Computed example of a mutant assay.
Amino acid sequence: MYINKDLKILGEVIKPGESAEVSFNVAKLHTRTPVDVPVIIERSKKPGPTILFTAGIHGDEVNGIEIVRQLISKKINKPRIGTTICIPVLNIFGFINMEREFPDGRDLNRVFPGSKNGSLASRVAYELIHEIIPHVDFIVDFHTGGAFRFNAPQIRIEQGNEDDDVMAEIFGAPFILYSTNSSKTFRKTCNKMGKPILLYEGGKSFHIDNTVTNTAVNGAKRILNHFGMLSRQFKVSEPKKACVKITESSWLRAKHSGMFKATIALGIEVKKGDTIGNITDPYGKFNHFVKANHTGYVININQSPIVYQGDALFHVSTKTKQ
């Protein structure tokens, strides 16, 4: 049972039916210029859950930032009931410099729940966990793959939680990847606090992809619709196909160094022995065909044109479930 009451967050009071942009300011640039992390809040007059959409934990993951930007610009975040909170860029310092980490060299997604008197990244984590998360009922956190590693659109959750399974299927990404929560991550900390969270992965850093973005925006609409929060002006589309649930996966690594090119599309199922790429030298004397070492779905492709022996080339499922 939800009660419509004033929302007191980051020193501001937002009443039912109000919109607000608040921010937390943990530190300044070395020029003494203030750097704010905008938090966009939309509240309905009718009581309901509070949903949080976050992106930009890593400053170079601009595709996730674009997803939350679209939710705001298209007014998808204006709820019919309840409250939405959008934080498009958590690591504003990394975003300004187009870097994954904070200026202190730390990965924000490895310092949760943070410390009030710790490093810069740790202080941002602490502020998020203590000022925002206690107010929310459900979280969707948007990420991308690392440099050159392009992820197929996927939801990542831990195995064994039926509620997470249901919400992941409602989101409707092509793949659900069951993965263990790493220590000190945002996802792990939210789980410990009893806050359900879906982690969306899609695309690669320093890149915006329309398919990845559209998949996520449609997924966010399905989540809001499930909670009765989506405005009636928006239509909810059914996923084009059922989610493939991946319980185990492995990386196929380069046997040689050279110039690399994948020859198959992301997201397809390959058979053991299929040629899926090739590694050549710059002089036209060497051409190694990369073959699938097992049957499975390709959920990540290394798009770097240059690879070294041992580099990860393809992430392929090894086990799925119904």
Rank of each mutant, 00 (worst) to 15 (best):
N63C: 15
E61C: 01
C86A: 15
N97R: 14
V124G: 07
R43G: 01
V124Y: 13
L52D: 07
P79R: 13
R80H: 07
G48R: 05
V37Y: 00
K74N: 14
G118Q: 08
G105Q: 03
R110H: 09
I67E: 08
F95G: 00
S115H: 09
M98N: 14
P79H: 10
K75N: 15
L128D: 09
P79T: 10
I40V: 15
G118T: 09
A125V: 01
G118N: 07
P79C: 11
R69G: 11
D107Y: 03
K45D: 15
H130V: 00
R100Y: 05
K74W: 10
V68N: 13
E99A: 11
V89D: 00
C86Y: 10
P34R: 00
D104C: 02
D60A: 13
I92C: 03
I85P: 07
L52H: 06
I65N: 06
C86S: 15
G114D: 00
P47C: 04
P103I: 01
F112W: 08
R110W: 00
T33H: 05
V89M: 06
E42T: 06
G114Y: 03
M98C: 04
D36C: 06
I41K: 12
I96C: 01
G82F: 06
A121N: 03
E99C: 05
V89Q: 02
G114I: 03
Q70S: 15
T50M: 13
A121T: 03
T50C: 15
T54K: 11
N97D: 13
P88N: 10
Y126D: 14
V35W: 00
I65G: 06
F102L: 12
R43L: 02
S44H: 04
P49L: 13
P88D: 09
V35G: 00
S115G: 08
N109I: 07
V37A: 08
V37K: 02
F95L: 04
G118L: 07
T33A: 11
A55D: 08
V62G: 06
E127K: 14
K78M: 12
N63K: 05
S115Y: 03
V39F: 11
T84D: 01
K45A: 10
Q70A: 12
I67V: 15
I41F: 11
L120P: 04
I72S: 07
F53E: 03
S119K: 02
N63L: 14
I41E: 03
